[in-house]
Amino acid sequence: MTEPEQTPEPQAPAEPPAKAVPRTAEVAAYLAARMCHDFISPASAIVSGLDLLEDPSAQDMREDAMSLIGASARKLADLLSFTRVAFGASATAETFDARELAKLAQGVFAHMRAELDWQVEPASLNKAAARAILNLAQMAGAALPTGGVAKIRAVEEGAFVVIAVEATGPRARLRAEVLDGLRGEAMGEGLHGHWVQAYYVHLFMTDAGGRIFADVGEEKVTFAASIPA
């Protein structure tokens, strides 16, 4: 009598191999691409305004062209000033006046739909804390595509600066690639420009001995960070 054939046990699907985190050179390239993306829009608008001024058939639009050039130049200058501290080395400064950081953040929010509520208690912040608070503020504004309020708070607790950022408003959201970057993970699907900013924050926070956390709720995105003072 032949034995019945045994049914093979079902096998669990294999886990896809984890994506490798990009190397330093790739991260630098993604950061450069991110900054170029931010700058190209106002720069192109300035060129468009200049083209209108030079067009003999469009002299009736001269006032509109000057308004476009002025608004775009201010946006470009605000973004450049912000980026120099938020992403750049700023090697000449190890500490930053909180009032100057507030101006940089306000300059960026002037071109966003969200409003900024700046409640930073320390008079000055070290380089890592300054970078963290600016990047988290910008990310909070980006999490409010239809408007809302981004509340930025920072206090000194012992040997640490504690940062709490709340983005509250309708349709508040945080892209999956931002969460991946903050956790120090490689990006899955999504846009490198959003991922690389979050991953950059993870890198310099880790290097400075800090920690960062993000949470997404109903109409609210929350960031929390602590970093040595």
Rank of each mutant, 00 (worst) to 15 (best):
E94R: 15
V85C: 05
A102D: 14
A142T: 11
Q119A: 11
A86V: 03
V85L: 10
S124L: 12
F87Q: 08
L101H: 05
P145T: 09
A102H: 13
T92K: 13
I152C: 00
Q119G: 07
F109I: 03
L134W: 03
S90K: 00
L125F: 02
A105F: 05
T83R: 15
E100C: 04
A98L: 00
E115F: 07
R84H: 14
A123R: 11
E115M: 08
D97V: 13
R99F: 10
A143G: 02
A105K: 04
D117A: 14
P145H: 03
A123D: 11
S90M: 09
G148M: 06
N135S: 12
L104F: 02
A93G: 06
A110R: 11
A128K: 01
A132T: 15
F82G: 03
N126A: 00
A142F: 12
A142E: 15
A132F: 09
A129Y: 04
R99Y: 09
P122Y: 05
M112P: 00
F82Q: 02
G147A: 05
A114Y: 06
A130G: 09
Q138H: 13
V108A: 01
A137D: 05
A130I: 05
L104I: 06
D117V: 00
A102W: 10
L134Q: 04
K151D: 03
G141Q: 09
A110F: 10
F87R: 07
T92A: 15
V120E: 02
N135V: 06
L101G: 02
T95V: 15
A129W: 01
R99P: 04
A105G: 08
T83C: 13
G88H: 06
M112G: 07
M112S: 09
A110H: 09
A91D: 12
K127T: 11
E121D: 10
R113C: 08
H111T: 04
A140V: 09
E100L: 12
T92P: 04
